[in-house]
Design a protein around this nucleic acid. Structure first.
Lengths: 342, 342
DNA sequence: CTGAAAGCGCTTACAG
DNA sequence: CTGAAAGCGCTTACAG
């Protein structure tokens, strides 16, 4: 079936394609097209079930009313929910959003990213991985609006919406200390990503503040690209070997989930044998028994701010990058009870 | 910064845009463009950091090498994982995929869907809701390739990849019966969606087979569009009121998650006071204590099959719809122990 | 071996 | 109030 075009409508209505285009874009009244003409054109368009060719439109105007959201793993709870808010917000302003996952797979993530950027959307919201830096510089050079979320590059002057990771970790440790824990391990990603660095700093600072000695071997860094299987093994080994820790802070959703699996396999009872805090909330943490104390990210806030900033850049050509840092909140649940004297 | 076009390359190399286009599409050798010309053009293209304008390309060729995956809620575990496989598979064949969520929001889902279809991708993989039917008929009429996953419309002769829902429910009940349960409730969605109907049928058939009486009031249907809050309340009320049931089958991931929350609030111990089985696996079910027995969907299989069928339709113009039904597997965990005599 | 030209479907200055 | 025409950046039959 041939797609119906503006030309078909023009023919059927007996006017020029110019007029049709004007009317269909809602500029009829402005351009003083007669009311009956407007109605007629709209009626025919509907009859023919016309829908504009987005390629032609995009080619001509350079606009798509489409935002791209690029994350490294779309099956992740955090991103799933970010996506939801971003979509809701964007829709409010008449934009659709396309989600794209870069799968966090070294070289591949770059190809995927290039492909996406090639789609020429109006702007991008990106949760970047280290390997994306070159592509992001391209965006920058091309003047394409974008905003980074969750992570950012210290040496790139870009708009971003991030979390106060330092505070998140700091507060976690403070809470553990208050509950009587003193041998606190941190399990984190071995990556350059700034947010993990900040979390580690917050952890150290909090220990310092409470005069708890810092043991370097209580810090477990797990290579970023490890498979779930390998991460599981690493965590298991670490916890088994360090028999004297009394609590542990997982610095990401994913690490936390796998960490719980490790504890389960080791038959360590959460909240009894070991206090547990995780970064990012999810259903598992919220509903498992005992429920897990978490540092919760203001997911709605991240999504809303990102869309707002991005649209400002797109529409008003506001060029100075904006950096928003949101505050995490500590949600105390059952995995960090007051420590029993042993 | 002006985007560089094929014209710039032509000017700089001193050939026509035709030649540039041919070379850049890899047809140089075929068209017997001289080797040095090919090299020169490619070098210049790289220097100028050329990337083709997808609108122009799409407008001209009608192809985009892009697949659309439309789901109702992207923050859902099942869809998150489907997305992952679909993307992996599609990438293998040189396609990128865009995810779009219809947010399952009555009227809105239709607008979103229209917008997406307007993007004119090469084909669509859709987990449809009832309200999408009109749009899907449009796709059908327009001859756009698409395949339905997870759900389908009985009166639409479309390609689909679905689960043997009947068997899933049947096997669940059989397992419960074997473990000694006899007052088995089913909590399901009150929707026309065929997969929920099938699950209910499987439940009834299995009861019949094992000569367990069927009590209509052991079937709780929850309106599809209820908010999580309302679903929670419904489930809580139902379970509290029906004090005599000894086990419950939740027919979806989402219902199961909220169901566990309800049980928790009612202080019903899973696996002790009540046997529990859920459709679809996820981290919560796998790692909570006790771990939940589930009917697991072959997510990879669904994704792979969907992409394969879709690409066949796109490429070979193979037009007869293909329907694939995959078999679920019962994963027995701790929420359905042998029932104690009471 | 290479190029001039048409055309994909739209929008938008410009002219009347 | 309405239309003819140019042009967005590409590809592709066709000609030489």
């Amino acid at each position: 079936m041939k797609k119906v075009s503006i030309k078909d409508i023009a023919r059927k209505t007996g006017v020029s394609i110019t007029t049709v285009s004007i009317v269909l874009n809602g500029n009829g009244p402005d351009r003083k097209i007669s009311g009956e003409m407007i109605e007629k054109i709209q009626k025919v368009a509907k009859e023919l079930n016309y829908s504009p060719n987005q390629f032609a439109k995009g080619l001509r105007t350079g606009k798509t009313n489409t935002l791209g959201l690029i994350v490294d793993d779309i099956s992740n709870f955090f991103f799933g929910n970010i996506s939801k808010t971003v979509e809701e917000e964007a829709n409010k302003y008449g934009y659709t959003v396309m989600f794209c996952s870069s799968q966090n797979d070294e070289g591949k993530s770059r190809d995927v990213l290039s492909a996406l950027i090639g789609k020429q959307m109006d702007g991008y919201i990106i949760a970047p991985t280290d390997s994306m830096l070159p592509e992001i510089r391209e965006l920058e050079k091309g003047g394409t609006p974008y905003v980074l979320i969750d992570r950012f590059f210290p040496d790139l002057n870009a708009s971003s919406v991030t979390l106060d990771n330092y505070k998140g970790a700091y507060d976690s440790v403070a809470h553990l200390v208050k509950q009587g824990y003193s041998k606190i391990a941190i399990i984190t990603s071995d990556t350059e990503q700034i947010q993990h660095q900040e979390r580690l700093e917050g952890y150290k600072a909090s220990l310092r503040k409470y005069k708890i000695p810092f043991y370097p071997d209580c810090v477990k860094k797990i290579p970023f690209k490890y498979s779930s299987q390998k991460v599981l093994k690493e965590i298991e080994d670490f916890i088994r070997d360090k028999g004297d820790i009394d609590s542990v802070l997982f610095t990401s959703n994913n690490l936390g989930i796998i960490g719980l699996e490790a504890l389960r396999r080791l038959k360590k009872r959460v909240g009894v044998d070991l206090g547990v805090i995780c970064f990012d909330d999810n259903n598992l943490f919220r509903l498992s028994s005992p429920a897990i104390t978490v540092i919760s990210q203001p997911i709605k806030g991240i999504g809303k701010n990102a869309v707002k900033i991005l649209l400002e850049q797109i529409q008003k050509k506001k060029k100075e990058p904006q950096k928003v840092v949101l505050t995490p909140s500590l949600v105390i649940r059952e995995s960090t009870p007051e420590k029993r004297k042993s």
